[in-house]
Design a protein around this nucleic acid. Sequence first.
DNA 1: GTCTATACGCCGATAGAC
DNA 2: GTCTATCGGCGTATAGAC
Lengths: 199, 199
Amino acid sequence: MDQEIEKTQTKSEIYDEILLAALKLFAEKGYFNTSLTDIVEAAEIKTTSVLYHHFKNKQMIATVLYENIFDSLNVSVDDIRRKNQKSSDQLRGIVDLLFRLTDEASYVMQFLLILKIDEFLPEQKPVLETAAFIKIIKIIQAGINAGEIRNIDPKLCYAYFFGIINSTLRLVLTGAVDKSADTYLSSTWLTAWNAIAKK
Amino acid sequence: MDQEIEKTQTKSEIYDEILLAALKLFAEKGYFNTSLTDIVEAAEIKTTSVLYHHFKNKQMIATVLYENIFDSLNVSVDDIRRKNQKSSDQLRGIVDLLFRLTDEASYVMQFLLILKIDEFLPEQKPVLETAAFIKIIKIIQAGINAGEIRNIDPKLCYAYFFGIINSTLRLVLTGAVDKSADTYLSSTWLTAWNAIAKK
DNA sequence: GTCTATACGCCGATAGAC
DNA sequence: GTCTATCGGCGTATAGAC
């Protein structure tokens, strides 16, 4: 998925190590409970100097993570939209993706669903205003227009549908239930879709 | 609601001012972005010494807020359980309460729904293990036993029902929609209840 | 590009007079 | 119980040699 990078502009392994270490720590302990020293240790580099050679400051590490995650999500949503016509199929694709990410990239999903991003990146767009989520609202709007989804405020519809999806994933991510997200996929999808589908 | 306090053991007005100021600031900027100086200014007291005379440290302010809010919620849930027999009526009572709190005490609801409490109060119980929420799970279990609610894992059922409720309230609390929570009450209740009700 | 050393600000917390 | 003054430490960030 990140393999489109040419050798020449590879940002170095250390760069990636730092990002990965920071992502894990932010997800586990939160941004403010994570010191640069923590990141340095987890990334297995020697001193903060190495870190500052790659990033302007702590906030920039978080900013890059934010951009990577939301850009990647945006690309995936585009892909799903291209491969499916009906709103229900597009939403199903997005749900599949989110459940898979929860099982296979839980740190990413914690960043998305659990962290309070605007607390440490106040200048970034709120989640609902990012490209990926604007497109999701569009999918919902299209579903309403096509008569697939009942005619309510798209944002409210988003809250209903992804309220069910996200709170289920939060149960998994916080360890409140012990099974994998995948276990709950079909039941949760059905419930969420029925909550917004036109009868 | 807080009027049961006898005059003799009133903790002084300053105590309450500090708590209220801290609640607002934590809700608006987050715990870590709020300094004791911020609280001192907002509470309209002179120095941090006054603050330290009432609270052992910053964390204790948050702890008292946490306990007040969850105790009060627990009392309300008891009250609702006493006044209603059916699970559906009890859940409806809780939903009414949460929507009212969102409109009338938004800082409290932000503390409950938006803040990542375990980041600054790591030793406190996770929300789902507090008395109030254990009782909510019991209400759901009773509804399943009575045949009112479909037979699924109570925690999953909780995620479906309150996923819809809470994500709608989050829209209001974060300003993603401009109307009051009350506007969405009946529609959201219906959707949430239908998501878990036995047909 | 990595090392050692260090600056420095902020903030939580305390001492002690009154 | 409130004031002035101040400490100590952590964590971010930088300087400068190699």
